[in-house]
Simulated assay, not measured.
Amino acid sequence: MTRERTVRTLLDRYGRSFADQAGIRLADTPSPLYRLLVLAHLLSARISADVAVAAARELSAGYRTPRRMLDATWQQRVDALGRGHYRRYDERTATQLGDGARLLLERWHGDLRRLRDEADGAAAGISRLLTEFPGIGPTGADIFLREVQATWPSVAPYADERVRSTARTLRLPHSAAGLATLVPAGELPRLAAALIRAHGHEDELRAA
């Protein structure tokens, strides 16, 4: 399979960003950025991506800002996670979401753009600050950065090791800059999401 066909097949089969799947229309404004942070938190747990996305949708229905998340009761957050079938980690996650909302409000006035600016827009600095949120480790920071890069151009191109590993297996460029050359500007989040979803299906893709 040619490189171009591989990319086309990836995008056709798997190329929907996780933010889009969760109903988050990303923009450089506080609410969608916060909802992306919540999604990254949920996706970083050892639970299926579809369940994490469903739970993010439930939380977005009522808690689209850190203030609303913090003002919700712990039980309301647990119930929203449960409606998304995010039950394995629901109690701990409900606590972490409340604590994270408080941190965002107190330190960055509820606006993740302030966090970005504190890091001078650099991916490494943003990642370090993101991991200060309860429940957001390096994996969660990677998810946030690869999804937000079209909205925050200062972090682009961004591809974490999970993305690069699948790209390497499929004989695609396995650097962020190399992968960015394969898609139009702003489309790297879709390709990154496709490579995450394609993990474990590489033989099938090569045979297509």
Rank of each mutant, 00 (worst) to 15 (best):
Q96K: 10
L104G: 07
L70A: 13
Q76V: 01
D90F: 07
L36S: 07
P66D: 11
A72T: 09
D50T: 15
G23A: 02
D90P: 00
G98W: 03
A45N: 05
E58S: 04
R46C: 09
Q76R: 08
A27M: 08
V53A: 01
R25N: 06
G98S: 10
G84E: 09
P32F: 04
E91L: 15
A45T: 02
P66Q: 07
Y63P: 04
R64C: 09
A55R: 02
A101G: 03
H85Y: 11
P32V: 08
L103D: 04
G82M: 04
L103P: 02
L37R: 05
D71E: 14
W74E: 15
G23R: 08
L33V: 06
L97M: 07
Y86W: 14
L97Q: 04
S31H: 11
A80V: 00
R46Y: 14
L103Q: 14
D28S: 13
A52Q: 05
L36A: 00
R88Y: 13
V78L: 00
A45V: 05
L43V: 12
H85T: 10
V78C: 14
G84I: 03
A94F: 10
R35V: 00
A45F: 15
I47L: 14
P32E: 09
H41P: 01
I24C: 03
H85N: 12
L39S: 05
Y63K: 05
L26W: 04
I47T: 12
D50L: 08
L39C: 11
R83H: 12
G82N: 11
R77Q: 10
R87S: 03
L97K: 00
M69A: 12
T65Q: 08
R68F: 09
T29I: 09
L26K: 02
L39H: 02
A61G: 10
R83P: 01
S60A: 15
I24V: 08
V53Q: 03
R46V: 08
V51I: 15
L43I: 06
Q75D: 14
R57A: 05
P30M: 13
A56V: 03
Q75K: 14
A54V: 00
D71F: 11
D99G: 03
A80M: 08
R67I: 11
L39D: 00
L26V: 00
R68G: 08
L104D: 03
A54M: 05
L33H: 02
T93I: 14
D28A: 13
T73G: 09
G100F: 01
R25W: 10
V53H: 04
Q96V: 01
Y89Q: 10
D50V: 01
T29K: 15
L59E: 09
G82W: 08
R83L: 06
R57S: 02
A94G: 07
Q96S: 11
A45L: 14
A80G: 02
R35F: 00
T93G: 07
L103W: 11
L36D: 02
R57V: 06
T65G: 10
S31T: 01
T65S: 14
A22R: 01
L33I: 12
A61P: 00
Q76G: 09
R46K: 13
A52K: 03
